[in-house]
Design a protein around this nucleic acid. Structure first.
Lengths: 207, 207
DNA sequence: TGTATCCAATACATAGATGTATCGTAAGGT
DNA sequence: ACCTTACGATACATCTATGTATTGGATACA
């Protein structure tokens, strides 16, 4: 009953979670059978029911892990920028925002998975509350860096930092979703959504 | 083979489409069985398969009708405002934008149905292209009225009208989705998303 | 080497959804 | 009044998914 067994078990769980992320993104939570997830992971349903109680439990764990990753990615990116002294007076606000948003990095499948998560957040009160709470954390992180950026520049914000952060996040989300619809790969995705974000940043700032 | 029979048939189809809108919004396309839709409409599956080939065909028709309604609602609202001389010099841009966005009116179920439609647009290339085309129509309508508003005022746009329209639409969408997640009813939904839109309008305009 | 344990595979029972084929009935035409 | 047609209900066959119960096999430990 030492580590190897446990290690193997955790590996199995991780592989199932990975596979689930892909399959849920591709065909949706309801469209994905437990067996499809297991096939993708290279297991049978025996492994699944040995590790999870239901597809729903798996989804909740997956969503929790995705949320955690996003929040952390944005926060650490913000901290990195602050520590790196990226906030010199001559820094480019547009570039910085771009970098922060990239931290939450969404490729095509990522966009689809997030959409699936949002749908669930719409249908399930509890889950929705958790989703919104997690989003507020991201907004807080972004608001902090926005405030810092503005404080070292000669510019000023035309709306409160939190509002600005929310707008940036929503526009970014809307643009990536539409980019994915148009069949763009992640590279183009970053590009087009970046352009729109740049314009919004210019709107948010005033001399 | 005169009207009554046909009329009854079309009535059946309409009731099934209505029921489908509700059920799809509540539990999603994949989560909704054909029987659930029929139950809601007060029919059996016999009626369904007599009128539609599959659940998917029904969904495509529903989505088409929803898209048409939205585009038309926005366009006619824009035309009404233009005709009503609502564009006097002293008009309130924020108020006008609010009215236009309201035309695409989304209550809680509407938000959920649109989310379902967008998910499909993400998964299906063809459908996604159609969705984006329809959205471009809406953006065009909004851009027109924005241009008009600006032209009769002493203000000017800080970005191209089409960009402004897209941003407004995306922010509006993002806010209504989040409002619905928070469990707000349609009244509150309009209120909170309206506030955020107001701020964006102010950002978009310059003296 | 034997044994205990843990984990995933397999087999099975059941439930639910789909689509088709058939039937009953009401309305329209002659 | 009779016949025909159209539409929705019913019945059925099939398929797929789920969850559980049992089995097999690998690994750790004595």
């Amino acid at each position: 009953m030492t580590t190897p067994a446990t290690r193997s078990r955790e590996n199995t769980r991780a592989r199932l979670l990975d596979a689930a992320a892909q399959v849920f993104a591709e065909v949706g939570l309801d469209g994905a059978s437990v067996e499809a997830v297991c096939d993708r992971a290279g297991f049978t349903r025996g492994a699944f029911y040995s590790n999870f109680e239901s597809k729903d439990e798996l989804f909740l764990m997956l969503a929790g892990s995705v949320a955690e990753q996003r929040v952390n990615a944005v926060r650490t990116r913000v901290e990195e920028i602050a520590a790196d002294g990226g906030l010199s007076e001559g820094c480019d606000p547009v570039e910085l925002v771009q970098q922060i948003m990239d931290a939450g990095g969404d490729d095509r499948l990522g966009v689809m998975l997030m959409s699936e998560i949002r749908i669930r957040a719409l249908r399930d009160q509890q889950f929705g509350a958790a989703y919104l709470a997690q989003e507020r954390e991201m907004v807080s992180s972004i608001a902090i860096i926005i405030t810092d950026i503005v404080s070292v520049s000669s510019l000023e914000l035309r709306v409160p930092a939190e509002e600005a952060a929310r707008m940036l996040m929503i526009i970014w989300e809307g643009m990536t979703v539409r980019g994915a619809m148009a069949g763009q790969d992640s590279g183009q995705l970053r590009h087009t959504s970046g352009e729109e974000l740049g314009r919004l940043v210019q709107l948010l700032l005033a001399e």
